[in-house]
């Protein structure tokens, strides 16, 4: 079966709790940079929960917007990499080859969503915190760009299990860490090429929109607007 991974983020369910952020940090060996580096804009987290204010007291509103890599179908970051470190893989994901990266940061510069983060240092995990590091993926070294991969290691694990059992991958079998943990179930992940998948149904929702759709990047992350009113 053809595979086209996609993520749906239902803003009507998102509570902004940040469970996705820590799940991602735990899954993907993301370093902690400390207060001073965060101030310089060097936070390494691959997913952020942007918060928007609207209106004034007493009608003030806040809206949360989880922003992982959009995994664009026509990704602006890919075309500018001089060494092909960022490329499109067989599942349509926007993947990184860390070993190729020479740190030009052109990709981050060209990303309209600001989801790429750069290793300004060789980050250290004070012993024995390094015992927690996942053996499924490397830690990245200084001068390398990184970003959300839709937890490619979890997708591969699910694919391998399916292949071992001689079957197609099931809907819901491969999910990124953020989707797995999301307490209110705001995040959904799956194969849109499979018309019976939950995500294929979800993406028919008239509330759908993509971030900066006018740029023509064709993001694989689709948002569902917050609803107003009681009924549907």
């Amino acid at each position: 079966m053809e595979i086209k991974w996609a993520m749906a983020i239902d803003l009507d369910r998102c509570t902004g709790c940040g469970a996705c952020v820590v799940a991602c940090v735990a899954e993907n060996n993301i370093p902690v940079v400390g207060e001073a580096e965060v101030e310089k804009g060097r936070l390494m987290q691959w997913i952020r929960v942007a918060r928007y204010w609207e209106g004034e007291y007493p009608e003030a509103q806040a809206v949360y917007l989880p922003v992982p890599c959009m995994q664009c179908e026509r990704a602006p970051c890919e075309t500018v990499c001089p060494v092909y470190a960022t490329y499109h893989n067989e599942d349509g994901l926007n993947a990184m080859v860390y070993n190729r990266c020479v740190g030009t940061r052109y990709c981050a510069n060209n990303c309209p969503y600001s989801v790429r983060v750069f290793n300004w240092f060789d980050h250290v995990w004070e012993k024995p915190l390094d015992e927690q590091l996942s053996p499924d993926l490397t830690t990245r070294s200084r001068g390398v760009m990184e970003k959300c991969t839709f937890c490619i290691q979890r997708i591969r694990r699910a694919k391998e299990t399916a292949a071992e059992e001689g079957r197609e991958i099931r809907d819901g079998e491969a999910v990124p860490a953020c989707v797995q943990t999301c307490p209110p179930g705001a995040l959904l992940f799956g194969n849109v090429a499979d018309p019976h998948s939950e995500i294929a149904r979800k993406l028919k929702d008239p509330r759908r929109f993509r971030l900066m759709e006018h740029l023509g990047t064709e993001p694989r992350v689709v948002y569902l607007k917050r609803q107003k009113g009681a009924g549907r």
């Binding site: 940040g18 820590v22 735990a26 015992e131 590091l133 797995q180 943990t181 999301c182 307490p183």
Partner: peptide, 23 residues
């Protein structure tokens, strides 16, 4: 070595979900 904590999908309290603090 423990690598990652996730919610227990069978557990009636959280059904597979977990917050930032738990992780």
């Amino acid at each position: 070595r423990a690598k990652k904590i996730e919610g227990n999908p069978r557990h009636p309290v959280n059904r597979g979900r977990l917050c930032a603090r738990g992780q």
